[in-house]
C-alpha cells in the first residue's frame, strides 16, 4: 500500500477515490448483470442449435454410411466432386454492452436437388440425402459460429468484469478505506498532540503569569 501523507487534503482525496471506486464497482456490477442476461439469452439458442447440430450430424453420417455401402464410395466421391465449392461469408461486427461480437452473413448453403450441379438421374436418392443433410449441417454450423463466438466473447468479458469487480471490492476499496482510516487516525493523533501541547503551553504561561504576580 502506498504511503500517504496524513493531511486533511489527502484524506479528502482518498475519500473521493473510495467514492469513485464504489461507483465504478456498481457500474461494473450492473454491466455484468446485463452481460449475464445477454449470455443466457444466447446460450439458450446455442444449446438448442447444438442439440440440433448433433442430431443432424448423426443423421448425415448414417446416410453417408448407407450411401457408401449401397452406392460405393466411388459414386459418393464422384458426386462430391460435382458439388464441391468454397463457402464465402461476409463478416461484420456489432457491440453488445461494449463487447465486439461478429455478425456472419446468413447465407443458406442448402440447395435443391436440381441446383447441386449433377444430373439427378446419375445420382441416387441416398447420395442426394447425404448432400442435403450435410448442407443443413453446414447452415447450422455457420449460424452457430456467430452465436458461439458471441457467447465466448461475452463469457470472456463477464470473467474480466468479475475480476475487476473483485479487485475493486476485495483489494482497491479496502486498501483505500484502510488508507483513509490511517490518515484519519494520524490526523486525530496530531490534533490530540496539538491540543496537549497547547494546554501545556497555556499551563506554562499561566504559571509564569502567577510567578510574576507573586514577585510583584
Amino acid at each position: 500500500m502506498e504511503q500517504a501523507k496524513p493531511t486533511r487534503m489527502e484524506l479528502i482525496r482518498v475519500k473521493n477515490q473510495i467514492k469513485l471506486a464504489e461507483q465504478g464497482k456498481d457500474l461494473l456490477r450492473q454491466k455484468m448483470d446485463a452481460l449475464i442476461q445477454e449470455f443466457f439469452l444466447i446460450m439458450r439458442d446455442v444449446s438448442d442449435s447444438r442439440f440440433e447440430l448433433e442430431a443432424i450430424d448423426a443423421s448425415a453420417r448414417h446416410s453417408l454410411h448407407l450411401a457408401v455401402a449401397v452406392d460405393d464410395s466411388v459414386a459418393v466421391r464422384s458426386a462430391a466432386l460435382a458439388t464441391r465449392r468454397g463457402v464465402y461469408l461476409d463478416i461484420s461486427g456489432k457491440n453488445i454492452m461494449g463487447v465486439p461480437v461478429p455478425v456472419l452473413e446468413k447465407k443458406v448453403i442448402s440447395k435443391g436437388t436440381f441446383e447441386r450441379g449433377y444430373s439427378v438421374l446419375g445420382v441416387s436418392g441416398r447420395i442426394d440425402e447425404v448432400a442435403e443433410k450435410f448442407e443443413r449441417e453446414l447452415d447450422l454450423i455457420i449460424a452457430l459460429a456467430e452465436t458461439e463466438t458471441s457467447l465466448r466473447r461475452l463469457g470472456e468479458e463477464i470473467q474480466m468484469n468479475r475480476r475487476r469487480v473483485n479487485a475493486l471490492e476485495q483489494v482497491v476499496i479496502p486498501e483505500l478505506k484502510e488508507m483513509a482510516k490511517e490518515i484519519k487516525i494520524a490526523i486525530e493523533e496530531r490534533e490530540r498532540e496539538d491540543l496537549f501541547r497547547l494546554k501545556k503551553v497555556k499551563k506554562i504561561i499561566n504559571r509564569r503569569k502567577e510567578a510574576e504576580k507573586a514577585e510583584a
Binding site: S78, A79, L81, A82, R84, R85, G117, Y118, S119, G122
Partner: peptide, 11 residues
Amino acid sequence: KTILRGKKINA
C-alpha cells in the same frame, strides 16, 4: 461424369 465433375473444379 466423374471426369467432367473433376475437370469442372480443376481436381
